[in-house]
């Protein structure tokens, strides 16, 4: 059902059922504040998708359709094979690791429903420019990630109609909260066997540090340029994501520095290539962004 159809069906339900719910709602509209939401307004924000496919828009795509798109939009963080770059999430692999000491929880090894993948890509990805993909592109990248997990074939067309039928390997791996699962007892005296208390672990640094606190307290507040860089730029530039030059890489920076500070500032303020204006953080003042540029220049200029 399309999102519009979904909201319209609720309107239909409203008419059909009228006011119900025992013990829940009283008569609606006690206060009458706000405006009634129109179907069109709801359709613009109602982006959620459920395991039964409710909320999926019309459309479809194959992994083949998604391959180049994934490489362009996703691989810089998630890796070309979904293996994850740095601490960014691993998307593929990990089958049979859930009982191991270091489980690898991926789409294929852990996620119970394919709908979650479509919903999440659509609502939150790509990380720096969420909600920028078309519905077709969401189908395509969803299909490609399922393909990376060997869950569909390269030419399988994932569609509004069949997405809910994709069976995920770990679909039965979850159970509802059944806590409390630990029954401890309030013992007051001689609660352990004499001599049984041993240290089983402690932080590796603890013998070297005075109190641990000194080390923590010594953290300095970074200068503005560095702080802005951390906030707006480091997400890509620190790891070289999307070929973003890494500060301090003088070889990568020298041709850019040759363009002049003004050009670099202009690029940072207005965006360049896949780099969004102000690193995607429009709330930053121009002065703050310029400070970040100067911070990068100071790290990257040849001494």
């Amino acid at each position: 059902m399309s999102r519009l159809a979904k909201s319209l069906s609720y309107v239909g339900l409203t008419v059909a059922l009228g006011l119900v719910v025992e013990g829940h709602a009283e008569e609606a509209g006690n206060f009458g504040y706000g405006q009634t939401a129109t179907a069109e307004q709801i359709a613009g924000w109602d982006i959620d998708v459920r395991p039964d496919g409710m909320g999926l828009p019309p459309g479809g795509a194959t992994p083949e359709d998604g391959e180049m798109l994934y490489e362009e939009k996703c691989a810089s963080c998630h890796g070309s094979f979904g293996e994850g770059v740095g601490r960014y999430p691993v998307l593929a692999g990990g089958e049979g690791t859930l009982t191991e000491a270091r489980p690898e929880k991926t789409v294929g090894s852990f996620w119970p429903y394919a709908s979650t993948l479509w919903d999440y890509i659509h609502r939150a990805m790509p990380f720096t420019v969420p909600e920028s993909l078309t519905d077709e592109e969401v189908y395509a990248t969803t299909a490609y990630v399922l393909y990376l997990n060997d869950l569909i074939e390269y030419d399988f067309e994932l569609t509004q109609e069949n997405l809910a039928d994709i069976e995920m390997p770990n679909k039965d791996g979850f159970f509802f909260d059944d806590r409390p699962d630990v029954k401890a007892r309030r013992c007051m005296k001689n609660c352990k066997k004499a001599g049984s208390i041993q240290i089983t672990s402690e932080p590796e640094v603890s013998e070297d540090a005075d109190s641990g606190a000194d080390e923590v307290v010594a953290v300095e507040q970074p200068a503005e340029g560095q702080a802005v860089y951390q906030q707006a730029c480091a997400v890509c530039h620190a790891a070289g994501i999307g070929e973003a030059p890494i500060p301090g890489d003088t070889a990568a920076w020298s041709p850019r520095l040759a363009l002049g500070r003004g050009t670099l500032i202009e690029s940072a303020l207005n965006g360049k290539g896949i780099m969004p204006a102000k690193g995607g953080q429009s709330q930053l003042t121009d002065v703050a962004v310029i400070a970040a540029v100067d911070h990068i220049i100071s790290l990257s200029a040849k001494q």
Binding site: Y10, V11, A37
Partner: peptide, 13 residues
């Protein structure tokens, strides 16, 4: 926005 299985979907400032 409050909507879905409700009698009167609303938008509040």
């Amino acid at each position: 926005m409050i909507h879905g299985m409700v009698d009167r979907p609303i938008i509040l400032s």
